[in-house]
Each structure stands twice: as C-alpha cells, then as structure tokens.
C-alpha cells in the first residue's frame, strides 16, 4: 500500500501541493483526476523521487520513501511512465525495453519479462529493431508502458497515458492498463480524461489547487454531480 500523507511541494517559491493525502491500495487501480495545474504531475514526481517534498510523508509498504532519490525509488520496484512518453528516440525498441531493466541483474528473469512484455504488446514484437522515434504516438505509449514493465515493478505510476492519442488508441491503452491490474500490479493513474479513468479505477481522488477535494470509488465519482459538471463536461 502506498500512503501519501499531507505532502507539500513546489518549484522554487511557488507551492503547488498544499498537503495532499491519499492512499493507493495494493493490486488496484487508483486514479487522481483534476484540471491542468492542479498538482497531479507534481504529486507523481514526488512519489517517483524526481521532486523532493517539503513537508508530509510518503510510505510504501510501511517504509518511508519521502527522501529517496529517483534512482533509489526505481530500485525498490516503483516505475513511472512520464507524461509525453519520453521514449529514447534514437534507440531501437529492443534497446528501449532493455533500458527499462537497467537496474536489474537477474538475466534469466529479465528474459522472461521481455517475452511477457512482447506478448502483451504484439505490435512491438514486429518493430524490435526500429528506432523508437519513428513509431506512431500510440506505439510509443505502448513502448513506454512496456519499458516500465521491464522493471517488473510492484507499483506503476502513469502520467496522462491518453495524452495526444486518437480515441481508438486510448481505448487500447486502457485495455492494457486493466490487463496489468489483473496481473496483480498496483497502479496510480493520473488523467485528464476523467470519464475513462473513473470507469476503470477502483478508487478515485479529485485534486484541485494542490488539495484533495473529493474521493470515492471510481463508479461513485462518475455519477457525482460536481464531478460531472467540472470534469466530465456533461
């Protein structure tokens, strides 16, 4: 279980998070929805160790991880798929996947995970020697997910996986996210596409101006009047 307790963080003198508290249950999809600039990505960056918190604490499976660096976070099995995919454009699909397992040394298991990622994304299998920069947006998103899975992570942080993708491709990506959940991984999903995120999430939180303002099950928030008005555009 990931527990985020009253974390504060910001950039320079601008405070973005004013005490964000929520819980991500093991083996479930939890989503964090909110408008642009509400602090969704900042929250993920704090968990991933990319940004240091200035207050509060983050614990993962009972261990405090607030002060760990990004490198140490990867080593305890937390992978992040950054917004905008960030695949390595001049490296092949295969090399990108290999980079996902950079901190691991269990060669046999890495090989097995490699095969498993390719069965999850059959399209990537036919493009192993192609440069990642030449893939379509959807394929790059699949590669970014596959690369993160190469860590064999316990917790997967996903930042806006639907961004910039055609609706049909978004559907595909969300099918994969559900598939990953079925395999027992814990997922924290940050999305602007609130309707879609809520439809697959076990638990959901709404963040506004650096504060959690609403929480509940994904289904209950889908029918919540305020959420409908503010985020679903109905």
């Amino acid at each position: 279980m990931l527990q985020v307790e009253a974390i504060k963080a910001g950039y320079g003198t601008t405070q973005v998070l004013n005490g964000v508290t929520f819980v991500v249950e093991t083996g479930k999809i939890t989503t964090l929805i909110g408008a642009n600039g509400a602090g969704k990505t900042t929250t993920l960056n704090c968990i991933a160790g990319v940004l240091q918190t200035t207050g509060g604490r983050i614990t993962w499976q009972g261990r405090e991880i607030s002060s760990l660096s990004a490198r140490e976070i990867v080593r305890i099995g937390i992978a992040m798929i950054p917004e905008g995919r960030h695949v390595f454009p001049q490296m092949t699909v295969r090399e990108n996947l290999e980079m996902g397992a950079y901190v691991r040394s269990d060669t046999m298991q890495i090989k097995r995970d490699f095969e498993w990622v390719l069965t999850l994304f059959p399209k990537l299998k036919t493009r192993l020697t192609q440069m990642a920069g030449t893939l379509s947006g959807g394929e790059q998103q699949m590669l970014a997910v596959g690369r993160a899975l190469m860590l064999n992570p316990e917790l997967l942080l996903m930042d806006e996986p639907s961004m910039g993708l055609a609706p049909i491709v978004v559907q595909e990506v969300f099918e994969v996210i559900k598939e990953i959940e079925r395999m027992g991984k814990t997922i924290l999903l940050v999305e602007q596409n609130a309707a879609l995120a809520l439809s697959i999430a076990h638990t959901a939180y709404v963040i506004e101006l650096g504060n959690i303002v609403l929480s509940g099950s994904g289904q209950s928030l889908l029918t919540n009047r305020e959420v409908e008005k503010a985020y679903l555009g109905l």
């Binding site: 991933a48 990319v50 990004a70 960030h86 695949v87 390595f88 001049q90 490296m91 996902g100 860590l151």
Partner: peptide, 17 residues
C-alpha cells in the same frame, strides 16, 4: 547504452534508474 539514453532523454534515463 545508458550513456546514449542520458544523451537522448536525461529525465527518462533517471526514471530508468
């Protein structure tokens, strides 16, 4: 490979550890 990864996307390379 890590060196090339850093060259192409420093932030993503950090996320790989």
């Amino acid at each position: 490979k890590a060196l090339r990864a850093v060259a192409q996307d420093r932030r993503a390379a950090v996320l790989m550890g």
